[in-house]
Computed example of a mutant assay.
Amino acid sequence: MKFRELGIKGAYEIVPQQHGDPRGMFMEWYRFDRLAEVVGHPLNLAQANLSVSERGVVRGIHFADVPPGQAKYVTCVRGAVLDVVVDLRVGSPTFGHWEGVRLDDVDRRAVYLPEGLGHGFCALSDGATLSYLCSATYNPAGEHALHPLDPGLGIDWPAEVPLLSSRDEAAPSLADALASGLLPRYDACLEFTESLREG
């Protein structure tokens, strides 16, 4: 298992080691101890999600209030997606930047994103199935979205006509969310991460 930090501080791409033979394949897709070693604290597992999307579906950009936020460990167990991480932490050196990682059922990579970052993806195949491990349970009052097609984000989605949920279609732009004070602050996110390390 290899970890590579993305251009957005605190977010990682994880490449597992696959062991295959004529019977099939085995791998460790998540290791509590290895992740904690890299990010400096354990990922508290509070909820696991599974989503299935048809080709061209775009979900996101979703994020949660910090604290407590919601860290995620995401992998694609069927098909393929372009997984997107967006830095929404006001004051971060990479605020507003995004990075995409292809997740699929061939290389079986995963992405870890800490509290305060935005997350979304575009399904590259029919029946693309994502599995998420989350550090906090779903809290409707503290969960938010940005419009994934916002030119202010400038995400290059690989879909001719992206299919969005009504929630994502109605979500504000990055500029509007910033002006309304909806976005997490970088210093608060760092402070929260430090509390996890100390705890």
Rank of each mutant, 00 (worst) to 15 (best):
V161C: 12
T193H: 12
L190D: 12
L133S: 08
G118S: 07
K9T: 12
Q18L: 15
F3H: 11
L124F: 05
A46P: 12
D168A: 07
G118H: 01
L88K: 02
R59M: 10
A36W: 08
P184Y: 06
C134Y: 04
G142K: 12
D150Y: 00
R34H: 13
V106N: 08
G60Q: 01
A48V: 14
P16Y: 12
R4V: 09
G10V: 04
S165L: 07
L153R: 01
G10D: 12
A48C: 13
G60E: 01
Y186H: 15
A80P: 02
L45K: 13
I14K: 08
D87V: 00
L163P: 00
V101C: 02
D176L: 13
H147N: 15
V86R: 04
L196Q: 14
A141G: 00
E198I: 12
A110T: 00
H41T: 02
W29Q: 12
L182N: 07
V81L: 10
D65C: 05
V77P: 04
L82D: 09
V106E: 15
F63N: 04
H19Q: 14
T137N: 10
P148N: 07
G118Y: 01
S195G: 14
A128M: 02
G154M: 09
T94M: 09
N49F: 08
R102W: 05
K9G: 13
L82C: 03
V101A: 02
G24N: 09
V74D: 05
P158K: 06
C189R: 04
P162L: 09
V86H: 04
G24E: 11
R109G: 08
E169P: 00
S53R: 07
A11G: 10
G10Y: 03
C189G: 11
P140H: 06
P151N: 10
E143G: 02
H119N: 10
F26W: 13
G142W: 02
L149K: 03
P151Y: 06
R102A: 06
A177C: 09
V85P: 03
Y132S: 10
V106A: 12
D176V: 07
I61N: 03
G127H: 04
D176W: 01
C134D: 06
W29D: 07
V90W: 06
V74L: 05
F3A: 09
G24D: 12
